Simulated assay, not measured.
Amino acid sequence: MPEVIKISPNTILLKSDPTLPLSSAWFAPEFWQSQQALAGTGNGRGAVWFINSHFGQFVIRRYRRGGLIAKFNKSHFFFTGLKNTRPWLELSLLEYMCSIGLPVPRPIGGLYTLNKGFYRGELLTQTIENAQDLFDIIKTGNSTTVNWQEVGAVVKRFHNEGIYHSDLNCHNIMIDQNGKVWLIDFDKCEQRPQEERWKQENIDRLKRSLDKESNLHPQFNISNAQWRTFLEGYRG
Rank of each mutant, 00 (worst) to 15 (best):
T145K: 10
T145F: 01
V146I: 14
Q149T: 13
E150P: 00
E150W: 02
V151G: 00
V151S: 02
G152S: 09
G152T: 07
A153Q: 07
A153N: 04
V154W: 03
V154I: 11
F158K: 02
G162H: 03
G162P: 02
G162V: 02
I163F: 00
Y164Q: 11
Y164S: 04
Y164A: 05
H165S: 07
H165P: 02
S166R: 11
D167W: 03
L168P: 07
N169A: 10
H171N: 15
H171T: 11
N172V: 08
N172A: 12
M174E: 10
Q177V: 11
N178Y: 09
N178K: 10
N178R: 07
N178E: 12
G179D: 08
V181I: 14
L183N: 14
I184H: 08
I184L: 13
D185G: 11
F186E: 13
F186D: 10
D187E: 15
D187L: 10
K188A: 11
C189D: 06
Q191F: 07
R192P: 14
P193G: 10
P193Y: 04
E196G: 06
E196V: 12
R197C: 03
W198C: 08
K199I: 05
E201T: 10
I203V: 12
I203N: 09
I203H: 06
I203G: 05
D204A: 15
D204E: 15
R205P: 04
R205Y: 11
L206G: 09
L206W: 06
R208W: 11
L210H: 06
D211K: 13
D211M: 13
E213I: 03
E213F: 07
S214A: 12
N215S: 15
L216E: 14
I222R: 11
I222M: 14
I222E: 06
S223E: 05
A225C: 02
Q226W: 00
Q226A: 08
T229I: 03
L231C: 13
L231V: 13
E232T: 11
